[in-house]
Nucleic acid binder design. Structure first.
Length: 463
RNA sequence: UCCGCGAUAGCUCAAUGGUGGAGCAUUCGGCUGUUAACCGAAGGGUUGCAGGUUCGAGUCCUGCUCGCGGAGCCA
């Protein structure tokens, strides 16, 4: 008698056919007749359930007939070919032991639930088909990213989660404090005395690992961060969360073209890994979540990403004849409607938009020779919009210093960042990929709250 | 934060200002190969909260809370 996982049974059922095996897992659903019944058993190893058949020869047949969804059981029986059309094999049970009976009010039922409802039971939703598929794919994507960079010799750097910089320009920050909210210590001017903070000054949760990973780029050449990121914006959209995971590679002696090539290779590598490692899950997404998903991802794997400049993008939008709600004026940010039109209507594939006006991009991006644009790139994908934002970095100390002044940034606080340019400057570039946006893109899921195990969004810190 | 929509049984949804219903789930009964099994019956409600209009409010009005869609911020 052996104790295989359901995954192993489906992968090599001929090894187990006719043999007695023991399985442990949870009841996904069951159907009962007078003298026999079926249990769909999931043991976590596979997206697919194994059908367990039980008959009234079982001493505890009545008990098993009333088994509740979600209950954990241990089944011993013989694996046989299934007469049913929907599964190749099934387990003819000799004994079923109830390990943990689920209460009758187990909220996940044999019916379709809305994602909104399932968000309120985030601790139970991994037991549904959709979320089991989402979180397995999320895991595969995460590993694929590490694999991609590791195979290319990148060093993985754990940049800090608590930071002291307060003007990274990437958004509102959460404060990290140990002071008493109601009665903070005050200095002689009556202001809060932050010198009594545990760090002796104000601290925040990181909004990006980029600035602190750049110094490691000066040592290891190619590096990346992959960790949690926090933005305190009151964003209420399907693609923003207050806590999310970001991947930020930084490459030495490379320019924006190298950066884009890296981003494209990475996206293709990750998509390919997911398609080969999670075919059942991807088939499910294609069938129930997004009917165009696999077709679209195949198209991505087999085509080159388009590259256009911001100026060309504005031009294309103006010539499209399409009525936009917001004007398409050079110098203004591309609105979501513009980005979607470019990637979905004009090209229908991933598009890099590069060379944005310097005024609408971050201070650290390299100024082009036209003195008007910077070497920035956004990767837009159909369905999600912006999935990657990156740039070649400004590597000229005097230009960077001028940028600091223009952006009103305290030079002293960023002297360490300027040091990268003082001590052996070099061309370098990098980007940030939102892990959740990659998961959304690859699974077809439409809301970021449904690709994060326990999403943190305004008004929502359940669990 | 702004604009729009919504909140009714455990879940998913109906209900012209006039006695709040259905499907699924639950309980009971039936059924020898089901696939969200099927068939029959039963139980299940302070209609999100607080006010107001009205003879009468799930329905109309005001405020609040929460959710969803879109926008901004971005990944």
């Amino acid at each position: 008698m052996t104790n295989p996982l359901i995954k192993e049974i489906f992968n090599s059922s001929e090894d187990y056919l006719g043999k007695e095996i023991t399985l442990t897992g949870w009841v996904r659903t069951h159907r009962v007749s007078k003298n026999f019944g079926f249990i769909e058993l999931n043991d976590g190893s596979s997206f697919k359930n194994l059908q367990v058949v039980f008959e009234d020869t079982l001493p505890n047949f009545d008990e098993i007939s009333r088994i509740t969804l979600g209950s954990s059981i241990k089944v011993t029986g013989v694996l046989v070919e299934s007469p049913g059309a929907k599964q190749p094999v099934e387990l003819k049970s000799g004994s079923i032991e109830i390990i943990g009976l689920a209460d009758l009010d187990f909220p996940i039922q044999k019916k379709r639930h809305t994602f909104e409802y399932l968000r309120t039971i985030a601790h139970l939703r991994p037991r549904t088909n959709t979320f089991m598929a989402v979180f397995r794919v999320r895991s595969i994507i995460s590993y694929a990213i590490h694999k991609f960079f590791n195979e290319r010799g990148f060093v993985y750097v754990h940049t800090p989660i608590i930071t002291s910089t307060d003007a990274e320009g990437a958004g509102e920050m959460f404060r990290v404090t140990t002071l008493d909210h109601h009665n903070p210590p005050r200095n002689e001017h009556g202001h809060v005395d932050f010198s009594q903070e545990i760090f002796g000054k104000q601290a925040h949760l990181t909004v990006s690992g980029q600035l602190t990973v750049e110094p490691f780029c000066t040592a290891f050449r190619n590096v990346y961060t992959f960790g949690p990121t926090f933005r305190a914006e009151n964003s209420n959209t399907a693609r923003h969360a207050n806590e999310f995971w970001m991947i930020e590679p930084e490459i030495a002696f490379g320019d924006l073209n190298d950066d884009m090539r890296l981003a494209e290779d990475m996206m293709k590598f990750v998509i390919n890994e997911v398609m080969t490692q999670a075919p059942d899950e991807m088939e499910f997404f294609d069938k129930f979540i997004d009917n165009e998903l696999i077709k679209r991802l195949d198209n991505v794997l087999n085509s080159e990403f388009k590259v256009i400049t911001y100026t060309e993008a504005i031009d294309l939008l103006n010539k499209s004849g399409h009525e936009f709600e917001y004007p398409t004026t050079w110098g203004e940010n591309l609105q979501t409607e513009h980005e979607r039109y470019i990637t979905e209507q004009i090209f229908n594939k991933p598009v890099f938009v590069i060379d944005y006006p310097k005024e609408i991009k971050a201070f650290y991006m390299k100024l082009n020779e036209d003195d008007k644009t910077v070497r920035a790139m956004d990767l837009l994908v159909p369905g999600v919009g912006e999935i990657i934002g990156g740039s070649q970095r400004e590597d000229r100390p005097e230009v960077l210093e001028a940028k600091f002044r223009q952006f009103g940034i305290n030079l002293e606080e960023y002297s360490w960042y300027q040091d990268i340019r003082r001590y052996g400057t070099f061309p370098h570039a990098g980007f940030g990929l939102g892990l959740e946006r990659a998961v959304m893109y690859i699974t077809g899921m439409k809301n970021i709250r449904d690709v994060v195990p326990y999403p943190r969004t305004p008004n929502n810190v359940l669990f």
